[in-house]
Simulated scan of single mutants.
Amino acid sequence: MKKNSVATDLAYVAVFTTLIIVLAFVAIPVGTAGVPIVVQNSALILTGLIIGGRRGLYVGLLFLTIGLALPVLAGGGTTLRALAGPTAGYIIGYVFSPAIAGLIAYRAPRKKIGMVAVFIVAAFAGLFTQYVFGAIGLMVRSGLGVVEAIAAQLAFIPAASIEMTVVIIIALGVHAAFPDLIRRQPKKAAPAQSQAMATS
Rank of each mutant, 00 (worst) to 15 (best):
G77L: 08
V6H: 00
S200Y: 11
V35R: 09
F63Q: 01
S97T: 14
Y94W: 15
S142W: 03
T199W: 03
T65A: 15
R184A: 07
V147C: 00
K188L: 15
T8V: 05
S42M: 06
A88H: 01
V140Y: 07
A27C: 02
F128S: 13
L46C: 06
A171H: 09
G145D: 12
G34H: 06
G52W: 10
G134I: 11
I28W: 14
T32D: 11
V30W: 00
L181C: 02
G145T: 14
V35P: 09
A7N: 04
A152P: 07
V121W: 13
L103I: 02
T17W: 05
R55Y: 02
S142Q: 08
R81E: 10
S42W: 08
Q185C: 01
L61S: 03
A196H: 09
A43Q: 09
F16M: 10
A84I: 01
M139K: 06
K187Q: 13
E163D: 05
V132P: 01
V72P: 07
Y12T: 00
K3D: 14
A122K: 02
V6T: 09
V118F: 10
L73M: 08
T129N: 13
V116L: 15
I168S: 04
I37H: 05
A135H: 03
K187H: 06
Q195R: 12
M197R: 11
Q193T: 15
L62G: 01
A135M: 14
L70N: 02
I170N: 07
V174D: 09
S42I: 12
